[in-house]
């Protein structure tokens, strides 16, 4: 078996400032990795470098493509990378407005991803969209409504449906539960967990919420000032943190 993603020495600078420095790890099929750290620790910069939204200054990101095996997505030609981001990759933004087309119906939002990979039969596209709306618990009679008429939690679930409809193998998530109230968060976490298990997805989740990573992530990476200070099994890093910064982070969580 080969890792789905092999990250070697990813570095991104903003002028003299370090975004993230020398980050390396392997992600295996079916694994969910969490990245935590305070604001400005470089976790979103890293995620954007991995997903091809930012150009790293150094390092490589080898993705195990279906056709040709591991290929470096940093040096890959733009059309090929764009194809990957429409098929094998998915990116769930913190703000659903960044990941949805607000002027297009819910069904259109899901169908658009399918059409981008070549689906043309209207009946099939609509059927597929309805199926996915059901899986993320959006009632079928809302299929023709625009996302601007949806609540924040529904928009986030619609964004997830839009992303997963093409059967990606790797999902990037940037604070997927960030803007939601806690009752909606719980439902979304349960949904994500079920989907990850059923579809055998690999995922990288950036968050500052330690409770979210404990429930969703198998592995955890802790970042501070652009550097990875600790990584390991999620419950081990949270229950027996080795690095001073992680100890501070874990001991700073408020008990409910």
């Amino acid at each position: 078996m080969t890792p789905l993603l092999q990250v070697n020495g990813i570095t991104k600078r903003y002028g003299a400032r370090v975004g993230c420095a020398d980050v390396s790890f392997d992600l295996w099929p079916g694994e969910v990795m969490g990245i935590v750290g305070e604001s400005g620790s470089g976790k979103s910069t890293l995620l954007n470098c991995l997903a091809g939204h930012l150009d790293p200054d150094a390092g490589e990101v080898l993705f195990d493509t279906r056709a040709e095996g591991p290929k470096d997505t940093v040096t890959m030609a733009e059309p090929e990378r764009r194809m990957l981001s429409r098929t094998d990759w998915a990116f769930v933004h913190q703000n659903p407005r960044d990941g949805l087309r607000m002027g297009v119906s819910a069904g259109g939002n899901v169908g658009e991803r399918l059409m981008a990979v070549g689906a043309r039969n209207y009946g099939e596209i609509r059927g597929n969209a309805l199926d996915w709306l059901g899986r993320v618990e959006i009632a079928g009679d809302r299929v023709d409504d625009r996302p601007s008429a949806f609540s924040g939690g529904m928009q986030q679930r619609l964004q997830i449906a839009r992303n997963l409809v093409t059967g990606p193998r790797l999902v990037f998530m940037d604070e997927p539960t960030g803007g939601l109230d806690v009752s909606v968060q719980a439902r979304l976490l349960d949904l994500l967990r079920g989907l990850v298990r059923e579809l055998g997805l690999s995922a990288i989740i950036v968050t500052h919420d330690l409770a979210v990573v404990r429930l969703l992530a198998d592995r955890l990476m802790v970042m501070k000032s652009g550097h990875v200070v600790e990584q390991g099994l999620t419950d081990q890093v949270l229950d027996d943190p080795q690095h001073g910064y992680t100890q501070l982070l874990v001991s700073s969580v408020l008990q409910v």
């Binding site: 390991g232 099994l233 419950d235 081990q236 229950d239 027996d240 080795q242």
Partner: peptide
Amino acid sequence: MRMIYGNYL
């Protein structure tokens, strides 16, 4: 026990 489970290092 936690070390056996891998919860403690």
